[in-house]
Structure formats: C-alpha cells, structure tokens
Simulated assay, not measured.
Amino acid sequence: MTGRTTQPPVEPDPHSGRERRAVRLRRAAKLTSVVLPVCLIGWLSWQAVANSTRDVTSHPAVSPHYAEGDRVDADGPSDAAAPAGSPSAGAPAPSPSASAAGAANLPLAGRTVLLDPGHNTGNAKHTADINRKVDIGNSRKECDTTGTSTDAGYSEAEYTLDVVHRARQILQDRGATVVLTQDGDRPWGPCIDERARIGNEAKADAAVSIHADGAPASGSGFHVIMPAKVAAGPADTSAIVDPSHRLGVLLRDTFKAQTGEPTSTYIGQQGLDTRSDLGGLNLSKVPKVFIECGNMRNTGDAGRMSDPEWRQRAAQAVADALTSYLTG
C-alpha cells in the first residue's frame, strides 16, 4: 500500500471574511472617487444651462416706451452708471417700431406753443398800471383791463388761468414746450404788448389767447377772433393772417364739437370774427388767435364755464385744435 502523510486539520481564518469586505469597500471607494466628480460636473453644467434659460424666458428685454398720457422728464430717463453720452448700461437700442410709437405718442415734440390766459386777478388793484396806454401799431390802447365775471363772482381771470393750466398739461403730454404769458405769479398784467412779445421771443409755432366775454345777458355762445391785416408802426400781421385764419377755423370747429357750446349769437359770423384793434394780435409775429369761450353774463354760458368738467372739455378742445394745426 502506498503510504500518506497526514496533515493536521486547518482551522478557519477568522479574519478572511473581514478582509474580503475590506477589499470590496476599497474597490467601491475607488469607483466612487471617479464616478462622483463626473456626475457632479454634469449636474453643474445642466444647472448652468437651466438657469440661463430661465433668465432669458423670465426676464425679457423691454424697449423704452412712453404710453400716451405719461409725462416725460425734460432731461429724459437717466442711468448714473452709464457713461455720459452713451445709452444706459444694458438697455437695448429702441427698435424702429418703438421709435414710431414714441413719435405717435409725442406728436408735438420739438414744437413750442404760447398760451395766453387773459387778464389777471390782481389787475383791479393796479388800475394806474393797467390804464396806461401802449402802442399797438395802428393806435394806442390800455395796457390791460380787469376782465369780466359771472353774476356769482367767478372772474374771467380765474377761468382763463384754469383752462390754460389744463390745456398746458395736455400739450406737454404730447411733447410740446408750452410758454405762458403769466401763471398767476404776477401782481398784475402783463400788458398786451408784452403778451405778444413773449410769444415772439419764444418763436412759438402757434399761440392762443383764452378769454370769456362780458356782453349783454341776452347774447350767448363763443367766438374765435383772428388778426386782420395791419401794417403800421411795430405792427405787421401780413405773415400771420393766413395761418392764423386756418388755426381759427380749426379751433372754432373743435371747440364747438367737444364742448357743445353754440357759436355766438351776438358777434361775428358763424363763430368767427376778425379784428384790427387788439394789441395781442397786431403785435404778434407768430400765428395767433383769441377765443371768447362764452358770455359770462349769460346764465347758461356762465353755468357751463363755472363747471370744472366743462372747463376740462374746453381745454381739451384748445389742445386738440393746436395739435391738428401743428401736425396737419
């Protein structure tokens, strides 16, 4: 028989299972050290793209736009961080459509309008000043007068300044530069020759003098006064007669349509009158008309002119007529 060497029995190694687990953990750690950074880089890249997409879709660029009726600051929008003379940082250039919209909303941009509120509430306290005569070309006439009032005491001077303030706002909202002959900031006047001179020096594109009449109570309605041809001394209206007539017709038609006030029953023809004795017209070098908005001595006219809502319609009519004249 072949002989054998007998080996003693081998005891199980109590550490062999623990070692295998350690090896597996080391392998897993190596795998994690490679896979996790790759996954992290991919996730961060996805987030960057997603955030960029949200920024674009949630915050679209808005072109500057001024809605009709908004008032634009004379200096325009500003950006302290933008260099002088350059567009605001980050602001897109206006598109042609935005520029067209701006032009439509500001049809009177670059235009100058003179509004002349007739008389002054302080004139009655300065009779010596307003009674002195001034040269109106073809004659001499009082510097100014006190104006009239309703039977209830609402003065022409108060009425004219209120309507002028309302019309000024509308015209400024349309882009016009509006010059006033007085803004309730003078103790009296100004004289009629100075009123004309203010418009001339401003090189106004058009001028309207706002008044209310003090005729007999039986007469009612409004009328527009246009300059006659006068060439005498400092007066020469030859260049403004025709454009003033066009402005006058537009104002007559617009005022009648928007206020409901009928044309005068006691003066003029179909709401139009031509005069050569008004210094504010004779001395004007720019197209100019007067409007007598109604007869303050007539009960119906006085009631309408005392109503703020009606005065707003009157102001709207003046502004709309000037806009039609300057853009037509």
Rank of each mutant, 00 (worst) to 15 (best):
I192T: 14
A22H: 00
G85S: 01
D75Y: 12
D277E: 09
C293N: 03
D273G: 02
G221V: 14
P187W: 03
R197K: 15
V38E: 01
Y266A: 12
L108S: 10
S139I: 00
G118Q: 06
A128T: 11
D273H: 11
D173I: 04
T160G: 08
R24D: 05
R252N: 13
D73M: 14
Q312A: 12
G221W: 00
L322F: 06
P262F: 12
P83L: 01
V62K: 15
R18G: 10
G268L: 05
R174K: 14
A317L: 01
G328V: 06
L114P: 02
A212P: 11
A167V: 08
A28Y: 11
I240S: 08
T112H: 00
P92F: 11
I240H: 10
A100W: 14
G175K: 03
D73E: 14
R24P: 00
A84R: 08
Q269G: 12
S58L: 08
A157G: 00
G268P: 09
G279W: 05
S220T: 13
A204H: 06
P234H: 09
L114S: 02
S139T: 11
V10K: 11
A239Y: 03
V113G: 04
V318H: 12
M296H: 02
A239E: 13
Q169I: 09
D185V: 01
L281P: 03
D307L: 06
A206G: 02
S220Q: 04
L247K: 05
N131R: 14
S306F: 12
G153E: 06
I130M: 06
C39G: 14
D307A: 11
V163E: 06
T5L: 10
A29N: 15
T146R: 15
S99W: 13
A232P: 01
T145S: 10
G153V: 14
I267Y: 14
K30Y: 04
G271Y: 03
A103E: 11
S88C: 13
V179Y: 05
I225W: 02
T57N: 09
H59C: 03
G271N: 07
S238T: 15
V35N: 07
R168S: 12
R27E: 15
A61P: 07
G300P: 00
V23C: 02
I291A: 04
I41L: 13
G233I: 06
